[in-house]
């Protein structure tokens, strides 16, 4: 359960005159649900990378709670992300050859934090996301099932933040809806801050707040109530 505060953030790439992302001030309350929308090139993915700590913050400040990403080395940022941010991606990024359960536990195991309790939690999460065969290899699963495994993996270490990048874009309507439901309910249950980049209107409208990006700027910031109007 963490709040986000961004100040004077500017991300530019060499060779480009205008920054791909410029955010002067943004605050997201702890436990809230936020949708990020915008076309390609809007800076949406860059923002996701920055707030997930995947990309280095060179100019400005990105605070999760009291922690400023800009102050952290790459290794410490990795560690912080592993402990505090649950990531869900469009392409799942599950590792073939491993069972669903092993996939859920893989990042924790690689970080050497996979205790017996965590293994137990992995089993529990597996049921929470509505799956039945923990030993099933992921490559034999349907895409909807894969995304459920990915969500369980994101939740394993009880992250204060869940960041999902187009979680439903590669799913059919039905499983997309189910995955959306799942994301919202697990975030609500854990009280995690949920940030979802999406094009999926049905998913967007169920989140409390909507940030629209265009040309690297936040051009819209609406609450759910206002949107309905």
């Amino acid at each position: 359960m963490l709040s986000l505060k961004i100040e004077n953030l500017a991300v530019s790439f060499p060779g480009l005159t205008a920054p791909v992302l410029a955010v002067d001030h943004l605050e997201i309350a702890a436990g809230s649900g936020v949708a990020l929308t915008g076309g390609s090139g809007s800076g949406k993915s860059t923002l996701i990378n920055i707030i997930a700590g995947l990309e280095r913050t060179r100019a400005g400040h990105v605070f999760w709670g009291d922690q400023n990403f800009a102050d952290l080395s790459e290794g410490r940022r990795d560690r912080w992300r592993a402990a505090n941010i649950g990531l869900v991606m469009q392409d799942f990024h599950l590792f073939p050859g491993l069972s669903a359960l092993d996939n859920i536990l893989l990042p924790a195991r690689l970080s050497r934090v996979a205790t017996a309790d965590l293994v137990k939690r992995a089993h529990m999460l597996f049921q929470t996301v509505g799956l039945k065969r923990p030993e099933q290899h992921v490559e034999t699963m349907s895409r909807g099932e894969m995304q459920r495994v990915a969500i369980a993996r994101a939740l394993l270490r009880k992250p204060g933040v869940i960041i999902a990048d187009e979680p439903t874009a590669s799913l059919d309507l039905e499983s997309g809806e189910a995955v959306g439901d799942l994301l919202l309910s697990v975030a609500a249950d854990a009280g995690s801050t949920l940030i979802v980049a999406s094009h999926d209107p049905r998913l967007i409208e169920r989140l409390g707040r909507r940030l629209s990006l265009k040309g690297g700027q936040i051009v819209g910031d609406t609450q759910a109530g206002e949107m309905a109007a």
């Binding site: 790459e74 290794g75 990795d78 992300r81 990042p107 690689l110 970080s111």
Partner: peptide, 11 residues
Amino acid sequence: ALRAFGAPRAS
């Protein structure tokens, strides 16, 4: 992806 999901660089 390994890195993104929290695997340390050393791993």
